[in-house]
């Protein structure tokens, strides 16, 4: 499908989509509290260590600060996976790919290379999130919605660092397209 992009773009228009997401976020604030997703990783790990190494889980301050998998935080990320699955299955136009075309163009067809890179990148985003106390959602979006300076500060720096990184990685091949 992505080969015939002459047609309209397959994604929702950003304005109604933003209203939809804001509706979900305000619903979460009303029924639970500030939404977060990096905490779901910790929640899952806590469940794993409570099962395999109970003393370790009980003595670690990071696991003590977050509830285990039987909590909103974990069912939320689980729900995200379900939501992604349902949305993917019901969309005939949004392509599901194992590798982004821009990555293929820059680094070739090697799946091992891409998977190694995303594993390492995933490591970085979660390590960073846990140091700051939240991620794009848990700190930038939910923090800024509450006017927290931490969320705004985090948001500015993550965008800056990501834009710089993307430019260093893909910059060579994106140059041509920018001129159009």
């Amino acid at each position: 499908m992505e080969h015939t992009n002459r047609g309209p773009i397959p994604y929702w228009n950003w304005i109604p989509a933003a209203f939809a997401l804001a509706g979900v976020i305000v619903f979460i604030f009303a029924t639970f509290g500030p939404p977060a997703s990096s905490s779901g990783f910790v929640s899952l790990l806590k469940g794993f260590f409570e099962w395999t190494a109970p003393e370790y889980a009980a003595s670690n301050p990071h696991y003590n600060s977050i509830p285990g998998p039987g909590s909103w935080l974990f069912t939320f990320v689980l729900g995200m996976a379900v939501g992604g699955f349902v949305a993917g299955r019901t969309s005939k136009r949004i392509p599901v790919r194992d590798m982004p075309p821009i990555w293929k163009k820059r680094f070739g067809d090697s799946r091992a290379k891409r998977y190694t890179a995303t594993f390492f990148g995933g490591f970085l985003i979660l390590f960073g999130s846990r140091l700051a106390g939240g991620c794009t959602l848990g700190l930038f979006i939910s923090g800024s919605s509450q006017l927290a300076v931490s969320g705004l500060y985090f948001g500015v720096v993550i965008f800056g660092a990501a834009m710089l990184t993307a430019r260093l990685i893909f910059g060579k091949i994106s140059g041509k397209e920018e001129t159009q």
């Binding site: 990148g121 490591f123 970085l124 985003i125 960073g128 140091l131 700051a132 993550i158 660092a161 990184t165």
Partner: peptide
């Protein structure tokens, strides 16, 4: 945020 941003951009 810098660590996160590098991972996000990558």
């Amino acid at each position: 945020a810098v660590i996160f941003g590098v991972g996000w951009g990558l």
